[in-house]
Design a protein around this nucleic acid. Sequence first.
DNA 1: GTCTATAAGTAGATAGAC
DNA 2: GTCTATCTACTTATAGAC
Lengths: 207, 207
Amino acid sequence: MTSSTANDTRERILAAAATVLSRKGYAGARLSDIAELAELRTPAVYYYFESREHLVNEVMSVGQRSVLEHVLAALEALPPDADALEKLNSAVRAHLEVELTLSDFATAVTRNAGQLPPDLQETFKADSRRYFAMWDGILGDLAADGVLDLDLDVRVARMLVLGALNWTAEWWDIRHGELDDVIETAQIFVRGSLLKRPCDDLYSNID
Amino acid sequence: MTSSTANDTRERILAAAATVLSRKGYAGARLSDIAELAELRTPAVYYYFESREHLVNEVMSVGQRSVLEHVLAALEALPPDADALEKLNSAVRAHLEVELTLSDFATAVTRNAGQLPPDLQETFKADSRRYFAMWDGILGDLAADGVLDLDLDVRVARMLVLGALNWTAEWWDIRHGELDDVIETAQIFVRGSLLKRPCDDLYSNID
DNA sequence: GTCTATAAGTAGATAGAC
DNA sequence: GTCTATCTACTTATAGAC
């Protein structure tokens, strides 16, 4: 079918746009660079996308939403009786999986999020708020389980976690080790950063 | 003196460039936007800077180096017998102080670091390596003091810390609370993420 | 579907007055 | 030192052939 081929070309342009966007930025990503990477001429892009802006915006929203969707799916796949710590580990893993496998989309989004035109900013912020709320839910569960370090400002801590995770797309590549190794260290790291020291329990049990 | 006024204007253009860069990106920062924010006309910029590229590059290198310099100064200000944990707290505080007080420079750098022209990339990477090495020194001291969580991949952990800290410039403003509160949570957060659980010591002492 | 040729608009940079 | 006027180069987008 021609539609299958056409769709492949569309996806190829989208992926090329993500790569160029992550390297040149929202304003610097030239249609000619994207076309060259997708192995066709500039005007051919207009067969698939209405304008440069539509193409670029699609990269941003695909990249941004895929994180939210992938993490939500991972949480829903957990058994209903999963505790807060399992949710935390699962969310860290899922976030890094999308972030690093779709890393051109991820870096395109993180580097250019603050540079979006006003209308897209709205959509972006709405999605961000939903994502933050999901993490606040996990932190809330940790608190309910009595394992959250109560010396932390919760909203600040949530942003520090997301910063550590989002930033991976800026530096990680396969030379830094297997994806699973990064995920494992990140899980230990985040767990340590949020959880109260087990010996606090020990002390409080002693009282 | 005229040279004092001239210098003020130069600084004003530089600050305006940082702001515009952080919002529009490396390629999107128009000289006309920068000039408007600095309250003069575009050609006046050429009296102080050789070209758009020179101006933009100066913002990037000032922003990037100031973090390194400020943190080094903070570490050198510590008493010679300071232990690894004091160094860690001091580095976290110093990093956030520059990052958040110079936040337009900071976000300009973090958002556009990967989008620099090749020659600046070299300088940038060299400075980054020095900064990473400094943090590796702190982590090494923690390990030497026997308090580092040995389950962590050290290089990955270092990048997670820097991600958490760098990312603050993306979300923090005064509405998220006082700078000192952010610093305090970040110190607890980073300490928890890197240090082995005190009760591990407890257990090992029991053995 | 993809191309070549080209129109229309914009941004960096320079010339020269004040 | 800063301005107005202008040149040049580049990029998006369209027209129309194949």
